[in-house]
């Protein structure tokens, strides 16, 4: 029986896997192709402007820069499949090592922002749905419209201005690793993570509100009330879960938005994260690093989609694959 169940799962998962592989191949190709078009020679970036013709030729040979484009893409891609993302032109470090080093910062920011955004949006979404068109609902509708219209970097500047400069207590720039002490780490992460989270809260809370309002009209909510269950329990235990499917999808999709936000926030707050790595390596034409980071982000995006699917199954027993 478990074998048959495994069979169904495979039949469901295999096309999805094939599609994901195609997407990733395409992303790698696109990144390589785009950077190949870029003007400038990475050898100069590596050797400096005074490099001799021989030095440059030697570098080209070492980096396979004279090979045709497709050959280089093939070499790179076959490396990627084996887990080798190449080495940075600039630092000579393995790409994965610098990605891993930067990931600590960006990963923490993204996870903190996601957790914070959900922690704020879920109660807001539930309560504005509970008292839809009430005073709080209308006030929040106004505030969230304002937040939606505020670009993340303006929000970051505003927060930095108010919380770091005026109120004080939070550092406006720089980073402290977890190893330097959790307190210092969280204090440095607070402002950038809050910026990222605030950009998500309006869409999250609105999405949840709309779905909650629909759920609260349903019979099983009325039935729960007719049994005298407490309002809070009905809202958070009975109505929230069937209302959260769209929010889960949105959360999965917003990984991309978060990374985009992280690019801006990391530059603004001078944080050594992936976003900053992207900006510096793109401007320096450090092709392997850009390819590596883009590839990594694409994998994260696809993984987020898969996690969303699994979460769906956890949230809604009706979509679970069950042996019957």
């Amino acid at each position: 029986m478990s074998g048959r169940r495994g069979g169904t799962v495979l039949r469901l998962v295999l096309p999805q896997l094939a599609r994901t592989a195609a997407v990733l191949l395409l992303v790698g190709f696109g990144a390589a192709f785009l950077l190949d078009l870029a003007p400038g020679d990475p050898a100069f970036a590596l050797l400096g402007e005074q490099a001799t013709a021989e030095q440059i030729a030697a570098t080209h040979r070492a980096l396979h820069l004279d090979d045709p484009f497709l050959t280089r893409y093939w070499t790179w891609m076959s490396g990627v499949v084996r887990g080798d993302f190449g080495t940075s032109y600039l630092t000579g470090e393995p790409v994965m090592a610098s990605v891993a080093a930067r990931l600590e910062v960006t990963g923490e920011l993204v996870l903190l922002a996601l957790a914070g955004a959900l922690a704020v949006s879920v109660p807001i979404g539930v309560l504005t749905a509970h008292r839809a068109d009430g005073r709080a609902d209308r006030a929040w509708s106004l505030v969230s419209s304002g937040l939606i219209a505020t670009p993340p970097f303006v929000l970051a500047l505003f927060l930095a201005y108010v919380l770091a400069l005026k109120v004080g207590g939070l550092p406006a720039t720089g980073w402290a690793a977890w190893a330097d002490g959790p307190g210092a780490n969280l204090r440095h992460a607070a402002l950038p993570a809050a910026t990222l989270a605030l950009a998500l809260v309006p869409t999250y809370s609105r999405m949840l509100r709309a779905d909650m309002i629909a759920t609260l009209q349903e019979d099983h909510i009325l039935a729960a009330r007719s049994r005298g269950l407490p309002v809070r329990r009905i809202l958070f235990r009975h109505a929230l879960r069937p209302s959260s499917f769209s929010l889960v999808t949105l959360t999965g999709i917003s990984i991309g938005q978060l990374i985009s936000g992280a690019v801006v926030v990391e530059v603004l707050f001078a944080l050594p994260g992936l976003g900053q790595l992207v900006v510096t390596s793109v401007t320096a034409k450090d092709v392997p690093v850009v390819q590596g980071v883009v590839m990594f982000l694409a994998v994260v995006y696809c993984a987020a989609g898969a996690v969303t699917d699994v979460l769906y199954g956890c949230l809604d027993p009706r979509v679970r694959v069950r042996p019957t």
Binding site: A31, G256, S260, V282
Partner: peptide
Amino acid sequence: AVLAVPALVLLIAVAA
């Protein structure tokens, strides 16, 4: 494939 790359990262690459 286009969606898999965060918008701003893609934009930075194109701009560069």
